[in-house]
Design a protein around this nucleic acid. Structure first.
Lengths: 200, 200
DNA sequence: CTATGACCATACAGGAGAGCATGGAACCGC
DNA sequence: GCGGTTCCATGCTCTCCTGTATGGTCATAG
């Protein structure tokens, strides 16, 4: 029944066949709004409007899908984050750019980040990966603060406060208008950086 | 087989019968080190060295256990937290006391707090409860900063940074020696409060 | 037009876990 | 020590999910 797609195939374009990427994308969505426990083969199949027979052609097992999901996250939410922000320029401007990433949310998905952290609580390899990402990110911040002239213990502490603060913000599941966040931005910057927001 | 408790009944004292509280305690432990998904009736039964038959005498369903778990958390980790910290005294000293709660961790359990937040990601009522707790706690902080003389928008921002920072710290699953944390405490205090650590 | 490979449906086996029903054991008041 | 209450064991049913096997359909190269 129904290769003709009764209503809407949810993600893939009309009638197109699926690939591993489609399954990973569906898994990512399920992870974000349900946790790993909700990443189940038959549910994804239902959502993609195919049967599990399709899945087991693309993947050997559910574990293989989770591995692919992990690699997908690493590739999309860790590497770019670092390469973009660990560049050149005035330290204060680099810091402003760092905060900007959180604010505009173009480079990465905070909800996915939280979901990954949730997953990490019950999976050793995931925990390792997430912690590596966290360490790398805080290290970028630490170097920026050090370049701004803060002595070593304080640079580390400021990096932590800034980064942990953001993680906490998203962990709380706070929903605020972009306007409000932008209005508070100068104050956040002053408190976290100990400087006023620079021009540019 | 075995009312005589082969090895150790895990929690309840020798041979004693169980009550709702025992099941809730077991559920809390399971929640902390496995997430809601691991709070399963038969696993708890195994851990308590009884069968599921016992459970369904004390509880109508698994959902009822989760409700009890929720109420248990609210009663143990929200109300005391506020009453203790919203007291009298110098604002700076109250702030120091607030941070002290995080540090010595006697008044509440940060791991449980994180587990609850994870749970809140996939449950509306839990999210509502956790958010109420968060709002109440940040409000205590905000009032302290305001009493310290910070004008209103900044008091709010400093309260957020301080609180979110702690939430993030635990969300990352960081494990540090108490020594290191105490060594960094003065710096944290200086960055977060804009003051040196007061005496007393 | 046909053959090959990519993609998917169907049907089966098996496990894990929730929930109910019922009988038995332990305990307590009297 | 007897009867009622409290607590627990045992044995079912049912649902959800994973994994495998196998055959069908579609696209496309030649």
């Amino acid at each position: 029944m129904a290769r003709k797609a009764d209503t809407a195939p949810d993600k893939r374009e009309t009638g197109a066949r699926l690939g591993r990427a489609d399954w990973v994308a569906a898994a990512r969505r399920a992870l974000v709004d349900g946790g790993v426990a909700e990443v189940k083969v038959d549910r994804l199949a239902t959502r993609l409007r195919v049967t599990r027979g399709s899945f087991y052609w693309h993947f050997k097992s559910r574990a293989e899908l989770l591995d692919a999901l992990l690699e997908d996250w690493r590739h999309a939410n860790v590497e770019p984050f670092l390469s973009v922000l660990d560049g050149e320029g005035e330290p204060v401007l680099r810091l402003k750019r760092f905060f900007g990433v959180w604010l505009n949310g173009a480079a990465f998905d905070p909800a996915l980040d939280s979901a990954m952290r949730d997953w990490a609580r019950t999976s050793r390899p995931v925990a390792r990966l997430v912690r590596e990402a966290d360490a790398a990110r805080t290290d970028v911040l630490r170097r920026i603060f050090a370049a701004m002239g803060y002595p070593e213990p304080e640079a580390e502490v400021r990096a932590r406060v800034a980064y942990y603060h953001q993680v906490g913000y998203y962990a709380l599941g706070i929903v605020e208008s972009r306007q409000l966040r932008e209005a508070l931005f100068p104050l956040y910057f002053k408190v976290l950086a100990g400087h006023d927001v620079p021009e540019g």
